[in-house]
Design a protein around this nucleic acid. Structure first.
Length: 647
DNA sequence: GTTAGGG
DNA sequence: CCCTAAC
């Protein structure tokens, strides 16, 4: 494994892959495709490709609209007097691809079930037909009565030939599909607005989507037939997972459940091969990576990067195998260059198999009208944002970070089964992006996770990072990151693992072999991380400003908690301190000339109200003291007054 | 835990 | 947005 560092930029191992020119959102998604183990995203991508292709070919306006950009969705207004095909969409054979039709109706109209006719003629060149059926899921959401899901199942042979074609290239003209799937909405749906979503439509992306050439890490994911097959299989059974039932969920919180990225490295084996006793006691460090082979290398099987939505399985992502371009590629292993000062009396192998990394708590908010597709993208971007920032690995033993990176596994007690049970790995984002994604505010606005996640911060590790990290015996232990390049092998340069807090958004890998343990180690006794990074910047939208102003007008400027509760109770990412700060800047903004203002312009009307409220509460704060509601000011005059003075 | 204010 | 003193 060769992690190279970029000049002055610290550890960049897990930054975004360099993907050519493409919309950011598209780029972000890239890496995921090949990384999903269970194939879900894989399926999505395939579908996306097909859909994209078909849409390209499609003549309908809906189709062409949808194929633009990332195609968040197309709204088709159904006319009463006609039954017209709403969409033409490609379906991934063998999978339960959903074609999401949400019907937005008021609750009183719920009895009027939408009818979705699926005219299927999804057949391969050989004439194998796919089964197409629709399922209508009744939503418990008031505004989305029904969601129709389209399920397409193709015979095995169909699937395979299909996939084979896919494999040859997404741009192939032949997908083995003769016909398209056409959906008709029943006339009974008159005058209800029907959203036709293309949740999975995306641009095809290159096969080697997670690559970084040059001096940086190169992660190369390549699918093979096996993957595709597995992919489809899994998809078939993952229906429920993708059920759009709750697509209108107002706030999806704890979407990914686990509070930390803890997960379980499955420590299958802990085998100590006693065959390497000839290893020298003192091994001279070699900074040249891996020229010196040895069996002392760590074996990490490569897996996919993500484990469903909720999981980043890492072992692939970080494994040496993934770094296919390292000069040492093909080498059986590398001498643990960093072990120079380590006394190795016998060489043993400890195998680590990290099953997956889960994603920490993510807060996501989307409008009720958001599509499942956009939700997925949102989650995806949130996840990618975290990953892009780069990560570090820490090792926890029985919940406690192993601080001494110079110790050998053996010395640390990691070479015996007992301890392996309580071993956990931890990924820490270099830049915190804990929960940056949200789409509250006006629903019309695109659910665009703006703000590219801040560029990875330079880490404390910076100076300590090695130019190359050998795929040595401790590849996932920070010590390697820190030590390799330094002769002072014993200098306690380890700062990472030392302090990690439960809310440090760390990703922790836990032994999967023991479910019970999967929850244990991280929660306690972990110290605070030094890598407490800033939250991502999230500019207030006009809508939010409006809400804030309104609340302050009523509550005054000294009750931020109340303001929060009243106006931002469901916006978890806005703390009352945030609101207070925002108000502060609002007041400032209102006072300066429009030319000096930056960011999304706040309507002057709002700024006027800000000044008005500010003035009012400045004067009335003292009087108000104990009282509460009475303060509901009528600052109309005050405002005007103020404005005239100010302007 | 909240507020208020400087950074 | 962060940090923290002060309550």
């Amino acid at each position: 494994m060769v992690f190279k560092k970029r000049a002055n930029n610290g550890f960049t191992g897990f930054q975004v892959p360099v993907i050519p020119r493409a919309p950011r959102s598209a780029r972000r998604r890239g890496p995921l495709k090949k990384t999903v183990d269970d194939g879900q995203v894989c399926a999505f991508e395939i579908l996306a490709s097909i859909a994209g292709k078909l849409l390209e070919e499609g003549e309908s306006s809906a189709s062409s609209n949808a194929s633009e950009g990332n195609s968040q969705g197309v709204i088709v207004e159904n006319r009463q007097d006609e039954v017209k095909p709403l969409i033409t969409e490609g379906i991934h054979p063998g999978s339960c691809i959903e074609s999401i039709f949400t019907r937005e109706v008021a609750s009183e109209n719920r009895d009027q079930k939408p009818i979705l006719h699926a005219k299927s003629d999804f057949s391969s060149e050989k004439g194998e037909k796919a089964n197409v059926k629709t399922e209508t899921v009744e939503s418990d959401d008031k505004y989305v009565s029904y969601t129709n899901r389209l399920v397409v199942e193709a015979p095995e042979n169909f699937r395979e030939s299909y996939n084979r074609k896919i494999k040859k290239g997404f741009r192939s003209d032949k997908y083995g599909l003769k016909d398209r799937l056409e959906l008709y909405m029943s006339p009974s749906l008159v005058d209800s607005k029907v959203n036709v979503k293309y949740p999975f439509h995306r641009k095809p992306f290159p096969t080697n989507s997670f690559t970084k050439d040059g001096n940086d890490i190169k992660l190369d994911f390549r699918d093979d037939d096996e993957n595709f097959i597995r992919c489809t299989k899994v998809c078939a059974k993952s229906k429920t997972f993708r059920s759009p039932r709750r697509m209108a969920h107002r706030r999806i919180k704890n979407l990914l459940s686990s509070k930390y990225w803890n997960v379980a490295p499955k420590l299958k084996d802990c085998e100590l091969s006693r065959s390497d006793l000839e290893v020298p006691l003192y091994r001279k460090r070699k900074t040249s990576h891996g020229s010196d082979k040895s069996r002392h290398n760590t074996i990490i099987k490569r897996r996919k990067f993500f484990d469903r939505v909720s999981g980043v399985t890492s072992d692939g992502g970080f494994s040496s195998e993934s770094v296919s371009n390292s000069p040492e590629k093909g080498n059986d292993g590398h001498k643990p260059s960093s072990s120079a000062k380590i006394q190795v009396t016998e060489e043993s192998r400890v195998k680590f198999s990290i099953k997956s990394f889960r994603i920490p708590e993510l807060y996501i908010e989307v409008p009720e009208t958001a599509t499942v597709g956009s939700l997925k993208r949102t989650v995806m971007e949130a996840v990618m944002a975290i990953i892009e920032g780069g990560m570090h690995v820490g090792v926890l033993l029985q919940g406690e970070a192993i601080g001494d990176d110079n110790r050998t596994l053996e010395q640390t007690g990691l070479s015996c089964n007992e301890n392996l049970d309580t071993l956990s790995f931890m990924l820490e984002p270099s830049s915190i992006l804990a929960s940056p994604v949200s789409c509250i505010g006006d629903p019309s606005s695109q659910c665009d996770t703006s703000e590219p996640t801040r560029s990875p911060e330079t880490l404390a590790l910076d100076s300590g990072i090695t130019d190359t990290i050998d795929d040595s015996n401790l590849p996932i232990i920070p010590g390697n990151l820190v030590e390799n390049n330094h002769d002072s092998a014993y200098s306690p340069t380890d700062t990472i693992v030392d302090k990690i807090t439960p809310d440090s958004k760390a990703i922790v890998a836990l032994p999967a072999s023991n479910e019970a343990l999967a929850v244990v180690p991280l929660s306690q006794k972990i110290k605070r991380s030094e890598f407490v990074h800033r939250r991502t910047r999230r500019p207030f939208s006009v809508t939010e400003v409006e809400a804030l102003v309104h609340a302050v007008e009523e509550l005054g400027t000294g009750r931020w908690r109340d303001v929060k509760l009243r106006a931002f109770d469901n916006a978890d990412h806005r703390t009352y301190v945030d609101l207070k700060d925002k108000w502060k800047t609002l007041v400032h903004t209102a006072k300066i000339s429009p030319q000096q203002r930056r960011g999304e312009p706040v309507p002057q009307e709002l700024l006027d109200r800000v000044l008005g409220a500010h003035a009012y509460w400045s004067q009335h704060q003292i009087k108000q003291h104990g009282k509460h509601q009475s303060g509901t000011l009528k600052i109309t005059e005050a405002s005007a007054e103020r404005v005239s003075i100010q302007v």
